[in-house]
């Protein structure tokens, strides 16, 4: 990671097979309540030949995060590494962050009867929250803090096609550039054919 690394997600729509592994892994790892999807896989143009593709979406940990700008409680804080987190003890569940968010990331659990909504929950990039790192309270309120343990966020870690990438934004764009440039050369995007598997002699 470089000095001024900002951690970012990137989902490669040429690779995503919409298996929903990321979203289930996330829900499972953080034991999210029903109705909360920190990560969601969406399919665009479903069934339309040549136009269909899928993407895995969660909080994108925006630079100049709009959610942070509008929150009336100022409960957001952006870590040095660019992860956008918030303090659930301050949050009042007004949903302004949701209105500002370009990705529909903030979510609100139904708090019991009459559809009243509780405080906001969103992807933490598996970095917990403002509570003491890896404390029980942090775990209960924000889910696992994998970043502090040096682990990759669980959604990206389990992505079997490596469509979902997470890391220093500069490195991620390098990987993507390499993928784009190497389509048809070197990196295998096609299944092995006879010549690759057996050699061209026979």
């Amino acid at each position: 990671m470089s000095e001024n690394a900002r951690l970012k997600f990137y989902c490669d729509e040429h690779r995503c097979i919409s298996c929903d592994g990321c979203s289930v892994a996330c829900a499972e790892a953080h034991e999210l309540p029903a109705g909360i999807n920190r990560r969601k896989v969406i399919t665009m143009n479903e069934g339309i030949l040549g136009l269909e593709y899928s993407l895995s979406i969660a909080c994108m940990h925006c630079t100049d995060a709009p959610c942070e700008q509008v929150c009336p409680t100022d409960c957001f804080y952006i870590r040095e590494d660019g992860i956008v987190l918030h303090d659930k003890e301050k949050c009042i569940g007004c949903a302004y962050c949701l209105y500002a968010c370009p990705f529909g990331a903030p979510q609100f659990p139904s708090d019991g009867a009459f559809g009243i909504k509780g405080v906001m929950d969103k992807c933490t990039m598996c970095a917990g929250g403002p509570e003491e790192t890896n404390s029980h309270k942090e775990r209960e309120m924000y889910g696992q803090n994998r970043i502090s343990e040096g682990k990759v966020p669980v959604c990206a870690a389990m992505c079997s096609t490596k469509a979902l990438l997470v890391g220093d934004s500069a490195e991620i764009s390098d990987i993507y550039r390499e993928r784009v440039l190497s389509v048809g050369h070197g990196v295998k995007t096609q299944p092995y054919g006879w010549s690759t598997a057996y050699g061209s002699k026979i």
Binding site: S18, C19, S23, V24, A27, E28, A34
Partner: peptide, 20 residues
């Protein structure tokens, strides 16, 4: 369905898989 991989009995008993 991908999220139900087999007969689906176990998967439908998993909260997060069933939610899909």
């Amino acid at each position: 369905l991908v999220n139900m991989n087999g007969a689906g009995m176990e998967n439908r008993a998993s909260k997060y898989l069933a939610a899909l």
